[in-house]
């Protein structure tokens, strides 16, 4: 079911949803929210885009190859950063990363990059789960060329 009305409304609505999701991710350390909540909001916006505009158009806009690369790099960086923080905390030198001014955007030390990586991983994982439910496979023939 694909009409002009739905396409135009979604064209207006999706940037607002994505801005709200990015806000929830970036301000997760001083306001409610965080990586998981913001990532699920972003993921549902991409799922909405795929349902309205069809799978071929979405595969051109968000190619499978780059999404998989992004989620892998984000997972590796999250694991290495969090593991490094645990090891540094064991030796008592975890004050290398500056804490920042409380109640401003640059506070909380390493929480902002960790939240951004969790957000990326959750976004792409929810998108992939929805594709698997809908179509049964992740990669198409026209996407793999």
């Amino acid at each position: 079911m694909k009409t002009k009305i739905i396409e135009n409304i979604v064209k207006i609505l999706i940037p607002l949803i994505q801005v709200f999701g990015i806000y929830v991710i970036l301000f997760g350390h001083i306001s409610p929210g965080g990586g998981f909540a913001g990532g699920s909001i972003l993921g549902s916006s991409i799922i909405l885009f795929r349902f309205v505009y069809g799978s071929e158009h979405t595969d051109k806009k968000y190619p499978y190859k780059y999404l998989m690369r992004t989620v892998s790099i984000a997972l590796i960086m999250y694991g290495s950063l969090k593991g490094m923080l645990f090891i540094l905390d064991h030796f008592g030198i975890d004050k290398i990363i500056p804490v920042g001014v409380p109640n401003t955007f640059l506070s909380g030390g390493s929480i902002i990059p960790l939240n951004i990586m969790i957000g990326l991983v959750v976004t792409i994982t929810f998108y992939f789960i929805a594709i698997l439910f809908e179509e049964g496979e992740l990669e198409y023939e026209h996407a793999s060329e």
């Binding site: 998981f36 909540a37 699920s40 909001i41």
Partner: peptide, 12 residues
């Protein structure tokens, strides 16, 4: 918890 419930429970 409310934001997570609204986005996961009611959305995804």
């Amino acid at each position: 918890m409310a934001i997570t419930e609204a986005s996961v429970g009611a959305g995804v």
